[in-house]
Design a protein around this nucleic acid. Structure first.
Lengths: 255, 255
DNA sequence: CGTCCCCTTGAGCAGAATCAAGCCTAGTGG
DNA sequence: CCACTAGGCTTGATTCTGCTCAAGGGGACG
């Protein structure tokens, strides 16, 4: 129930080898790993990096490959159009694995930016083929990719087939469920370190409309977003307002 | 330049083993396969199936796994909400590989429907692990997944960050480029066997607005959609109107 | 020949964008 | 310690994109 904080992150950085003791592994959301698999991942890991809020980890079109699992904090994956518009593709939460595209393609089609100060487990991009040579790990990567794709398709459906209110409700419910599976909730409330601008970029709305939508839901007694923290007052009504309610069943891999 | 037609499909069905002679492999778009890889895929294949326009190949939430590469015709991948709205996630074109999710997850998060009569190479879902045990094939699957995800994210960006006109232009350009890489164009024109309703579901617009958007672009001399066929009059202006212009560089795998 | 589906068009309406301005808070520098 | 600034939130007024409702036309098929 307690939120992961910088103290936990600091503790983690002093423990070696990290992968074995990674506190994220204790979350029910993640698949079990065998000793051998853990040993492999520990060896695959090359850094425990950190970045500050606002920092761009890698950029759409840039060359340098980068492969990591977010350990603490929030990040965002987004695309920028030449005309200046920006579409936020996904919020990256602790436990999310990012950057496969940067290794397999010459250059990624999206950028990643830290929304808060973050720490992450960096892997060696040059050794990805070793990872993919192990059938067990290749299967995990494939499953992870399927989950990731599902998630993007869920968000796309919310944007394309629903109005702003429903899309907003769906995003909030989505975040609530994802954070819950990672034990990052405090009851019905969680830290949402995101500006209205960024929410708008995620939903295809303007900041003005994001505000009005949130105000509407607050007045209806569904939820409140205040001081970078979301409080859900009525989970049932939120579920009702969202366009998608069913969730994942199988655990996801933690790489 | 010539379009693939039912005659080619019929001829293909009589040739054995199919995979070696698959006419799709001649397209520049697809990665080279070694003899050994081809032999493996030929063995992996279990049927050369067909379905009629309107048929649902598999359904969101259904259990039966299904793994195939579309050989001829068009299909669509979509999600349906309980409230009835439908979001078209992608148009499936010849050469596209579909159904990994149906094998890895208990049930898929989307449905697939044939938009025209189609034929496809069906693979044995129970033997997917054999495929993933081969590092070469696992890498191809991962690369394919990355491309697929990119594609969905491109469409999502068009829907979320652009107005109807730009989203429409982007979709048409996208189809033009994808079909071109598979040699399914006739100059600046191609078969687009899709209703306004389906275009609307893909773009998050109503049929009425799809029509007005297309009429606008016709009057501007950019393109004409008539009798299930799209004719591009001015590719440069279409590119200008679309939100994304850069394309894939590396070849995609054909499974 | 009727029916169904799809395309087409018009009129009116609503959700969301734009424009513009005021407020609050945190951070900066004098 | 206070003045100044900048970024983000809040609100109102106005405009416009895209939706809803409604109706007519054309082609395919039984």
């Amino acid at each position: 129930m307690a939120e992961r904080d910088s103290a936990a992150a600091a503790k983690h950085r002093l423990t070696a080898p990290w992968c074995f003791s990674c506190p994220l592994r204790t979350c029910a959301d993640f698949e079990e790993f065998s000793e051998a698999e853990l040993a492999f991942m520990a060896n695959f890991k090359v850094e425990h990096g950190r970045a500050w809020a606002g920092e761009v980890i890698y950029q759409q079109g840039a060359a340098r490959p980068r492969l990591f699992t977010l350990f603490s904090g929030w990040a965002a994956r987004f695309r920028t159009l030449h005309s200046g518009e920006r579409q936020l593709l996904a919020f990256v939460l602790p436990g999310d694995f990012v950057g496969l595209e940067t290794v397999l393609a010459q250059s990624p089609h999206h950028s990643i930016e830290a929304l808060t100060d973050i720490t992450f487990c960096g892997f060696d991009p040059d050794r990805l083929n070793e990872l993919m040579s192990r059938p067990d790990m290749a299967a995990r990567v494939a499953w992870y990719q399927v989950l990731d794709q599902r998630h993007v398709e869920r968000r796309m459906t919310a944007i394309g087939a629903c109005d702003g209110r429903r899309a907003m409700a769906d995003l909030m419910l989505d975040l609530y469920l994802r954070l819950g599976r990672r034990a990052l909730l405090r009851g019905l409330s969680f830290s949402l370190p995101v500006t209205h601008q960024q929410l708008g970029d995620a939903l295809g709305l303007t900041t003005v409309h994001v505000h009005r939508t949130l105000r509407g839901m607050r007045q209806e007694g569904i939820l409140t977003l205040k001081d970078r923290r979301l409080i859900i007052h009525d989970l049932d009504r939120l579920r009702e307002a969202a366009c998608i309610t069913n969730e994942e069943s199988r655990a996801r891999p933690l790489l």
